[in-house]
Design a protein around this nucleic acid. Structure first.
Lengths: 345, 345
DNA sequence: TGTTGGCGCTCTATGCTGATGAGTGCTAAT
DNA sequence: ATTAGCACTCATCAGCATAGAGCGCCAACA
C-alpha cells in the first residue's frame, strides 16, 4: 500500500483510534468536533469517501459512520500508529511475573501469558519449546515394575518430559542407572531429533552385539522414542474470558466459534505456526490469518528463544479492533524478558 | 420430602421429563394430550396448583406453563426417575476410552471425562488423585546442574510428579542414585504425608550424624518436600463448549459467570470437595451447590478409588434441567471402569 | 481549486399499538 | 372427584410512526 497525503493519514488515524476505543462507527461530525483539525464535516466526508474507495474504510450500512476495514487497520499499523514506551510499572509487572519461576520454563511462560492477559483485555497464547528441537541435558530411566519403565528427559532450557513405556526384558534399577549414565554422555547437547538419528545409525553399526550395554541402551532408547507421540506441540492459553468483554463477540455464534478454536489444539498450533519467516514480531489482521476461525481477530506474535534459533512463540489474540500501539510493545517486551531469563539460567 | 399420591407423582414426573427434553414450560393441555393419563386439562391444573404450593413447581410468569423448581428436580431424582441400564455400545465406548492409556493415571482420567462429555451434552470434570495421599512407589533424583536437582516421584497408581529444587551442596549423579535407592526402601508403600512424618522424626533422631548417607538423604528429601506447594489439587475439565448448547445459558451474563467458574481452579476444587460424606454417588441440584456460581447447575459426582479409600472424584456439570436418568448411570459406570483399571495395573 | 453550508435521502433504533395465543384460576355442573 | 366453560393475564410479534445519526450531492464561496 503506497502512502497517502498527510491529511488522509491524519483523518484515517483519527478514525481508527476512535474506533479502537469505542467500537462504534465514526461519523464526520464527531471527527470534526474533535478540534485537532479544523475542517468541516463536509470536507471530512469527502476524505472519508475517498478512503472508502481505497478499501480502507467501510460502512456497516448506508447512513452509518465509517469503520476501518482489515486493510485500514493494516495501513494504520504499518504507517500511522506510534509505539509509546511501556510505563515502568508495566515492565516491572512483566519482569516480576516471568521471574517468579525462574529455571522452570513452563511455569515461566505460563506466568508470562498470565501477565499479558491481565495487562490487556485479550487472550494470550504461548507455544512451549518443541521438545524435539530442544537440546537434551539429561535422560534418566526409572524402573516402575517388571515391564514398565519411566524415562525422564530434561532439556537445556529446563523443560521436563516424562515418557512411560514398556520393555519385554526385565531390568533392575542399577542397570538402568548405568544405561542412563551411558546415554547421557552420548546425547549431551544433541537435540531429540539428533538423538534419534544417532541411535538409528548406531543400531545399524551395532546390531550383532545384542547383549552389550550399548545394544541394550539402544533398544531402550528406541522403545522410548517410539512411545513418544511424534508431535508434542504444546500450547498454553490464558485470558479466554477477556474476549467476552468485547462487543464484537457479544453474538453467541461468533463467540462459540472462537471458543471452539481455542479448545482445538491443532487450530491454535496452526495459528502460531503461521509466522515462520523469521520476523521477530508479526501482526496478522483479520482475514490475514490463515485459519478461518480467526478471521474476526488480530494476532500479535513474537518469537522467543536464542538469537537466530527461535524456540517458540508468544502472542496475543484480540478483535481486529485491538489496541495495537499498546499490545505490540507489550508482546515484544515480554518476549525479551523471557529471552533474558533463559540466557541467565 | 414425604411421598405424594401416585397421581401427583405421575404428573410431576411427566412435567419434569417434558421440561428436561424441551426446556419449555409445560402447560396443562400439552400434558393432557399426552394420553398416558386420561385427565382433562382442568384436573391437571388443579394438581399443578397443588404442586406449586408444595414448591415443586413454579411459573416463569402468570399464564405460562410450569417448570420444576430445584426442589421439584430433587423429588424427581429421589422418588420418580428410573435408571435404565446403559446400552452396551455406551459401556463399550467408556471402557475403550479409559483403557487406551492404561497405566497412566492422568491420561486415563482425561480420556474418561472426554468420553463423558461426548456421550452427554454437558461438562465433565475429574480431580486427580491427591499426590499427598497416594502411596509412593518410587522417588528418584536427577542432577541438573551444580545446584538444581529434579525429583521424580511415581505413585502406586502410576501418577508421576516432578519437583525441581535447589541444594547448596553439590552432588554427583552417582550419589543421587544411591540416595534414591536408599530412600526408596524407606518410603515404599507410604503416602507422601507418611514420608513427611517419617523424615521429620528421623531427622530428629539423626541430627548429629550430619555426614551419613541417611542424613544427606533426609536433607535432600526435606528440601524437596518444602519446594512442593502444599496443595496440589489438580482438576481437569472437558466439554466446556457443550454448555453453550443449552438455552439456559444463552444469556451472555450467565454464560460468563459459568465460564469464569470453570477457569477458577479453586472454585472447581471447592465444588468437587463438597461431596465428602463417603457417598458413592451424589447429586447436587441448583441451589444445593455450596458455590453460588453453580446455582443454575446440577452436578452428578462419583468417587473413584479403592474401596473405602477414595482417590478422587469424577463428575458431570449441566443445567438443573439435566438428563439425570442417563447421566447418573453414566457417571457411576465410568467411575467403576476407572476403579477396575486401577486395580489391574 | 479546495472548502463549506444546506438540503434531501437512507437507514437504524425506539417506542407504541393491537392482535394472537398459550395458559391459568375460578365456578358451576356432572 | 372431575370436567367444561369462561374470563383474565401475560408474552410475543408484526406493523407503524418518529427521531436521530449520518451520508451524498450540489451550489456558493474564498
Amino acid at each position: 500500500m503506497e502512502n497517502l497525503t498527510e491529511r488522509y493519514d491524519r483523518i484515517l488515524n483519527a478514525i481508527v483510534s476512535s474506533y479502537i476505543c469505542s467500537a462504534e462507527p465514526v461519523g464526520s461530525r464527531t471527527l470534526s468536533r474533535n478540534a485537532a483539525f479544523k475542517l468541516s464535516p463536509a470536507t471530512i466526508r469527502n476524505v472519508m469517501a475517498d478512503l472508502e474507495d481505497l478499501n480502507l474504510l467501510c460502512q456497516p450500512h448506508t447512513s452509518a459512520g465509517r469503520i476501518p476495514t482489515d486493510k485500514g487497520f493494516r495501513y494504520y499499523v504499518d504507517h500511522l500508529m506510534e509505539l509509546p514506551e511501556l510505563p515502568e510499572t508495566v515492565q516491572e509487572k512483566i519482569r516480576m511475573a516471568c521471574a517468579s519461576h525462574q529455571g522452570n520454563m513452563e511455569e515461566m511462560l505460563k506466568d508470562g501469558i498470565m501477565a499479558l492477559s491481565q495487562l490487556a483485555p485479550y487472550v494470550s497464547v504461548v507455544s512451549l519449546p518443541h521438545f524435539n528441537q530442544a537440546t537434551l541435558k539429561h535422560i534418566r530411566f526409572v524402573r516402575l515394575n517388571d515391564r514398565q519403565i519411566l524415562a525422564v528427559m530434561v532439556s537445556g532450557s529446563g523443560s521436563v518430559q516424562n515418557v512411560l513405556f514398556e520393555m519385554d526384558t526385565v531390568f533392575v534399577q542399577d542397570d538402568l542407572n548405568r544405561f542412563s549414565n551411558f546415554l547421557n554422555q552420548m546425547v549431551d547437547g544433541l537435540t531429540l531429533e539428533g538423538v534419534k538419528r544417532k541411535i538409528f545409525s548406531q543400531m545399524k553399526a551395532d546390531k550383532d552385539a545384542y547383549d552389550s550395554v550399548m545394544s541394550q541402551v539402544l533398544r531402550l532408547s528406541q522403545k522410548m522414542l517410539d512411545q513418544r507421540a511424534g508431535d508434542d506441540s504444546e500450547i498454553m492459553i490464558d485470558g479466554k474470558l477477556n474476549i467476552l468483554e468485547h462487543p464484537e463477540f457479544a453474538d453467541l455464534d461468533k463467540m462459540k466459534q472462537l471458543f471452539r478454536a481455542f479448545e482445538e489444539k491443532n487450530i491454535m498450533v496452526k495459528l502460531l505456526d503461521e509466522a515462520q519467516k523469521g520476523e521477530q514480531l508479526q501482526v496478522f489482521i483479520g482475514v490475514e490469518n490463515q485459519c478461518e476461525e480467526m478471521n474476526l481477530c488480530s494476532v500479535v506474535m513474537a518469537d522467543y528463544g536464542q538469537e537466530g534459533q527461535p524456540m517458540g512463540k508468544i502472542g496475543v489474540i484480540g478483535p481486529t479492533r485491538m489496541e495495537y500501539s499498546r499490545i505490540i510493545p507489550l508482546v515484544r517486551y515480554t518476549a525479551e524478558v523471557i529471552n533474558q531469563l533463559m540466557d541467565n539460567s
